[in-house]
Amino acid sequence: MKFTISPEQRQFAGSVQDLLSGADPAGAARAWARGRSGPGRKLLRGLADLGVPALLVDERHGGLGGDPVDLVVAFEVIGYHAVPGPVVESAAVAPVALTGGAARRWLPAVAAGESFATVLAGPEVPLALDADVADFVLDLRAGTVGEVRIAHRVRSIDPARRLFRLAPGESSPVDEGGRAFETGALAVCAQLLGAGQWLLDTAVGYAKQRSQYGRLIGEYQAIKHLLADVATQLELARPLVHGAAVAAAGGDPLLPREVSAAKVFAGQAAYLAARTALQVHGAIGYTEEHDLGLRLTKVRALLGAWGSASFHRARVRRAVAGAA
């Protein structure tokens, strides 16, 4: 497999980085958590102007006709900045799951950033993310697409991830959602990598500024070792995520195994980054005003999103046992 990111993909990631660095994703996430979607929608429109939701949409429907590697490159930056909203559902899952008339109906608006999807996928994705702003719901287990009818909201560990139970509504059939599920899980892997990298960068920056007992805390070997462990784990997880994206782009039959391995390792790396960043920051990391808290809750929620670690480990075990 080739893991090298192309110059064009690096440039695209740089454009997404420039957009989000010049905006206020943290403020948009806090507003989104309070039910004010305006700032978040503005942020998502900016991503649409760059073509993020159009990456996997076929050119016939106004998209860019890209592949999952392009998607992972963008979603790592999105995860770095903790962008709120149903971006995985709209940009990663809907373009893969929707075909035929459903694709013609919904994908042009999705590619333009004018419509959003929410997704259900059995026990791994039992609740609909941001259903209150979604225009349609995809049920990957049932193979249907239809209207959104909210039953009630369910509390999430991450306030910016607004979860809902849905009531039955009118729907129409779409293709089986196996590949769509893998693409959604892959996008979450990239988000975890991005969040972990932000946590590492922020902890390193804080360690270079915070003094204790007359020395910068970053000068202590214990702190250096903690941060080095995080950097190592992120660098070990990144090739697995990129490799899974290559497998998805090539239609590899072992894609579920690749995605599950990537989800496990990306989750472990991001969780270690979260624990270490909190340890380096101390009590200030618990405050609502500090942006660290946004990533701590985001990582915790993403660990279980699109399949828990135990679910993905079990898939890897079954794949390995089947190949033996």
Rank of each mutant, 00 (worst) to 15 (best):
S6N: 09
P7T: 09
Q9Y: 08
A13R: 10
D18L: 15
G46A: 05
D49L: 14
H61A: 00
L64H: 07
L64R: 14
G65P: 03
D67C: 12
P68I: 04
F75M: 12
P84V: 09
P86N: 05
V87M: 14
S90Q: 01
S90L: 03
A92V: 02
L98F: 02
W106Y: 14
W106S: 04
A111R: 00
F116V: 03
F116I: 02
A121E: 01
A121L: 03
A131G: 04
R141W: 08
A142M: 12
I157W: 11
D158N: 15
F164N: 00
E170W: 10
E176F: 10
R179P: 02
T183D: 07
A185H: 03
C189I: 02
A190V: 07
G218F: 07
A222P: 07
I223E: 07
K224E: 12
A228K: 12
A231H: 11
L234W: 05
A245F: 01
A247S: 14
G250F: 08
G251L: 04
P256Q: 07
V259L: 09
S260C: 09
A269Y: 03
A274N: 07
R275Q: 15
T287M: 12
E288L: 15
H290V: 11
L292W: 08
L296Q: 09
W306P: 04
G307A: 08
G307R: 01
A319N: 09
